[in-house]
Design a protein around this nucleic acid. Structure first.
Lengths: 209, 209
DNA sequence: ACCTGAACACCGTTCAAGT
DNA sequence: ACCTGAACACCGTTCAAGT
């Protein structure tokens, strides 16, 4: 019932990250403070700085866990032979998997977004998207740029989506206008639309040369 | 030389926003605190809450100013007759103008991004993008979704770009690897690439039906 | 209409010292 | 190897009261 994890006393870096992830998921990013995390671990705030140099690094570790949520452990099997024409499907499902991973934790997109902007970790997401695009025969430069464009859209979209979720749960609905503007409804469809736009743009650029 | 604006004593809501914008541009978002803003205005922190109910609202006001930077005052002239096939050009230049506006202030993209995610203001940007897309003959629903997709990409890209600027100015270059990964070079080109992907995707979706 | 003074309830981070 | 205790230098926000 309480939030403390008093199992054993001394903690590992992994304990800290896991507890932080639980606070994030239960109470949201604004409530994930070093002091609150320390309290949940039954420890002084200063103790956390033995495990992580600062909060930013902690958040980067959380971002890595969020992004690799529900992912195979990447065994070194030969590259799974995807049908060469099915790169569009690959990109779409890679994007959908990433969205699912972000949605699996409260404020997940914002956490990943902030650490991505700062260039810390989270390269896994771009790499997977870039690989999927590369299946279409695009060069590395193009695949990389397309992947970051995809990631920017995904992070922006899911952040927006998650922000709206908690705005709804305890929201100012009493404002008359239901405020459901153009595509606030069916976020999954709006997500697919955006991904398809980028995927279609790649196909279009190919047909143009 | 100092940051105080001791001109007259009593301030207006506009003074507050303008001074905040200057602190943002000179020192960045982390340094834009209510206390620092108050000091710059030669006033107690509590005085700010007469002009704005909270910091979030202040930031939304700043976002509005940033987004409409370098913009005509929207005179009610008849819709400028753009060549019907030139909607792509319209979208591209609308996107470029938005990027320029965001780049005109330090951390501009992050400020706009945060208020956009919260659904406060900044509808001007989406509206302009949607109008440009609509020139292509797409229905409102499609135009709206394309506009938000564009905005998500733009905000993510420029945030990243601006983060990298101050990371460079005082950065950890001594880390061996020059870290210039796939498209950290020439951000303007990477930006155009992303916009073209989305624009191309729209054209592709039209050819597909 | 616009601001002061004083407080409340917090933050992240450092650092000597303990076991 | 992992943590305590105590401090430093801050935050955003509220609210009675002043002019």
């Amino acid at each position: 019932m309480t939030e403390t994890e008093s199992t054993g006393r001394r903690h590992t870096r992994d304990d800290v990250a896991r507890t932080a992830l639980r606070i994030l998921d239960d109470h949201g990013l604004p409530d994930l403070t070093m002091r609150r995390l320390a309290a949940a671990l039954d420890v002084q705030p200063s103790a956390l700085y033995w495990h992580f140099p600062n909060k930013q690094t902690l958040l980067a570790a959380l971002a890595d866990r969020i992004v690799s949520h529900g992912r195979p452990v990447a065994t070194a099997t030969a590259s799974t032979a995807t049908a060469p024409t099915d790169w569009m499907h690959a990109v779409r499902s890679e994007a959908a998997a990433l969205r699912d991973a972000l949605l699996a934790y409260r404020d997940g997109a914002e956490v990943v977004s902030s650490t991505f902007a700062l260039g810390l970790g989270s390269t896994a997401a771009v790499d997977r998207l870039a690989s999927a695009v590369a299946l279409g025969g695009f060069d590395d430069h193009t695949s990389g740029r397309a992947a970051t464009a995809l990631l920017h859209f995904i992070l922006g979209h899911v952040s927006h989506e998650q922000q709206r979720m908690q705005y709804d749960s305890f929201g100012v609905v009493a404002d008359g206008v239901t405020a459901s503007s153009i595509d606030e409804d069916d976020p999954a469809a709006a997500f697919r639309f955006g991904v398809d736009l980028l995927v279609g743009g790649l196909e279009f650029s190919r047909s143009r040369r």
